[in-house]
């Protein structure tokens, strides 16, 4: 079960500061969306609106076509997992998991137990006594096992070590195959998580920069490698992101679509065309907007 999300001209203000500026976007149902943005770009603000934690200053947020704020059927479809402050949480981890199963109509306790096992989560410990990584694992267990049609993980991996993060990513892909839902993964770890994304959303300074399928985004960037002279000739007039030179060999990263004719031309000039990572594109795109 999956649901779609629409934002229609959404603006969010905190006093005079505009956290989101007239954002309109649609997140397709059943896809894994990567939400990328620099610190303070407005990622968490955007996600908190989808989860109906707050109301937009103007505009509207919809889930499957209906406004989500104070709409019990739609709010129930959204699970928002974020880096929660558990300093005061003296309940045991298992109590919080039990609460999620009490409230979440699609909660799968069997799956939760599997995840607890995989993350080696000590469920009988008070949550404020768990390590940061284990608190994150608890959030992930609740988020995954809730099987909410829209599941949001906002930097849910904080404090997790690399093996735990790997388990998290694998579980997302595995569960998506069997129980398709709409995932929104907000992250800084772009290079580590990009393989998960069906769709990429980049926001910067409260504005939407890009909302495209992953393939489209990755086909927008290319690295051109060859003799320095030839590379310079070929890339003149193109948007250059970065360049590196070693002796007479140069590699330039460009942004834009390379059509077949251009590729042919590169080939005939003896240049190599390679892919550019989403991370590099993200760095370039958000740098430009400054």
């Amino acid at each position: 079960m999956a649901a779609s999300v629409q934002l229609d001209h959404v603006t969010l203000k905190f006093k005079k500061f505009k956290a989101l500026k007239d954002v309109s976007l649609t997140l397709e149902a059943g896809k894994i969306h990567g939400l990328i943005g620099r610190n303070g770009a407005g990622k968490t603000s955007l996600l908190s609106l989808i989860a109906a934690f707050r109301e937009p200053t103007s505009g509207e947020v919809f889930v499957d076509g209906s406004p989500v704020f104070e709409n019990p059927e739609k709010m129930e479809q959204v699970a928002f997992v974020y880096d929660k402050d558990y300093k005061e949480e003296t309940e045991k981890a298992k109590k919080l998991i039990a609460l999620a199963s009490h409230y979440r109509p699609h909660f799968d306790m069997g799956y939760a137990e599997q995840l607890i096992e995989r993350f080696k989560l000590p469920v009988n410990k008070p949550v404020n006594k768990l390590s940061k990584g284990m608190q994150s694992a608890l959030n992930v267990v609740i988020g995954l096992a809730s099987r909410a049609p829209i599941t949001i993980f906002d930097e849910a991996y904080l404090g997790m070590d690399a093996p735990a993060r790997e388990i998290f990513y694998k579980e997302i892909l595995k569960d998506q195959e069997e129980h398709t839902r709409t995932f929104i993964l907000s992250t800084h770890l772009v290079s580590e998580m990009d393989y998960l994304f069906d769709h990429v959303v980049i926001i910067d300074q409260g504005k939407l920069l890009l909302n495209e399928p992953y393939e489209t985004v990755s086909s927008h960037g290319a690295s051109i490698t060859g003799s320095a002279e030839q590379v310079d000739v070929f890339t003149s007039g193109m948007k250059r992101l970065n360049e590196q030179q070693l002796g007479g060999t140069k590699s330039v990263m460009v942004y834009g679509v390379l059509d077949d004719a251009k590729r042919q031309e590169a080939h005939s000039m003896g240049l190599e065309i390679g892919p550019v990572s989403l991370q590099d594109l993200f760095i370039h795109l958000t740098e430009e907007a400054i």
Partner: peptide
């Protein structure tokens, strides 16, 4: 806060 995070409306 717990209720809203678990997908319940403020009314409920």
């Amino acid at each position: 806060g717990r209720h809203i995070q678990q997908g319940l409306s403020r009314r409920d």
